[in-house]
């Protein structure tokens, strides 16, 4: 007699393709972390300076780690929001607009209601989150109800958002100088500023949503087989709209952290977030066609992107190389993660 129950693929076999694909982002991250100190080591070697690998590294230090952390946290929140969307097999390109609007509205409310967290101005924080949710909701509605592919719907919404932010500020910068709010950056526990811990908390929340809520699991169902999910009775349209709304909230968190980091809210607050966050998500191993990956992948992806950015500065490469490197990285990550047999054609 055959025992069907025993047919489950043995999880053994150290180097299965799946396993390599799954762990590749982590390996890349580790390799990068070891690589940049090596360049420093080489540079000092050439100059004849004494240098103990890793120990004398400027890159591989807690100080620099905190620097990477500060640079990475807003992008991490944005990328986490985008992760939910990409798991569903859609994409969200609206983040730059959403972030700018949230940041600017937050700043207006914050300054208008007292200008310090110790007053009613703290209400500006929930307000920003609500605004993010609202923009995401509209984005999702346009995508689902008007049947517009998400990349286009969200791109257009992004333009609308940036335009709205510009309209609100008229091009001015708003300074948020409340010490209590800025303590996100200025107060440090164990060498890392509070904003890193805030981001960590939201990352855990995202993980909880992803793995312990019906909504989170439904994202995977939609990404893994939209039509099957629909025919099983899942309200796919609702899941999609909720996904975009949720992403909007995370974009708003990213906006708050970005304002906390530089103390300024303006139309340009959202700049560059789109490409960096999408890059981080796909480089982290969340597949563009949906169903695979998650927020931990995104954490790895965000770290990869920021380690590259930081490392290149440390070893003295000009900053403009970064865009090109990230562009190449995205193409590689998507190309490597695509199972060519399952794709008929791509447009």
């Amino acid at each position: 007699m055959t025992d069907i129950s025993a047919q489950t693929e043995a999880l053994g076999g150290l180097l299965t393709r799946d396993r390599i694909v799954r762990w590749a982002p982590v390996l890349v991250l580790v390799a990068l972390v070891l690589l940049f100190p090596f360049f420093e080591f080489l540079a000092d070697l050439v100059e004849g300076k004494e240098h103990v690998y890793l120990l004398d590294s400027r890159f591989f230090s807690i100080r620099n780690g905190a620097r990477i952390g500060i640079a990475a946290t807003p992008a991490l929140m944005v990328a986490v929001g985008a992760t939910f969307i990409i798991i569903m097999g859609s994409i969200d390109l609206s983040m730059e607009g959403t972030i700018s609007v949230c940041a600017v509205l937050f700043a207006f409310a914050f300054l208008g209601w007292g200008g310090t967290l110790a007053s009613w101005a703290w209400l500006a924080i929930p307000l920003a989150l609500v605004v993010g949710a609202l923009l995401g909701f509209v984005n999702g509605m346009i995508h689902v109800r008007l049947k517009i592919p998400s990349f286009m719907a969200s791109l257009a919404m992004g333009f609308v958002g940036t335009g709205l932010a510009l309209l609100l500020t008229g091009g001015d910068r708003l300074r948020v100088e409340d010490e209590l709010f800025r303590s996100l950056l200025t107060v440090r526990w164990l060498n890392f500023p509070i904003m890193c811990y805030v981001a960590l908390a939201f990352l855990l929340l995202a993980w909880f949503i992803q793995s312990h809520t019906a909504l989170g699991r439904n994202f995977y169902a939609v990404g893994g087989g939209e039509q099957l999910a629909q025919s099983s009775g899942l309200n796919v349209a609702r899941v999609r709209i909720m996904g975009f709304t949720l992403a909007g909230i995370f974009f708003a968190v990213g906006a708050l952290l970005a304002v906390g980091r530089i103390g300024i809210a303006e139309t340009a607050t959202g700049n560059n977030f789109m490409f960096v966050s999408i890059t981080a998500v796909v480089v982290g191993g969340t597949a563009l066609w949906g169903g695979i990956g998650g927020v931990w992948n995104t954490l790895v992806g965000v770290l990869i992107v920021n380690v590259i950015n930081n490392g290149m500065v440390v070893i003295g490469l000009p900053p403009y190389v970064q865009d090109g490197v990230l562009g190449t990285l995205v193409i590689l990550a998507v190309a490597l993660s695509t199972n060519r047999k399952s794709v008929t054609f791509v447009k």
């Binding site: 994409i91 390109l93 990349f151 490409f275 999408i278 796909v282 563009l288 990230l326 562009g327 190449t328 995205v330 193409i331 998507v334 190309a335 695509t338 060519r340 794709v343 791509v346 447009k347």
Partner: peptide
């Protein structure tokens, strides 16, 4: 490389 054009052109 089977990268959808909205990503490939964004990256390029």
């Amino acid at each position: 490389l089977y990268v959808p054009s909205f990503v490939s052109t964004l990256a390029m």
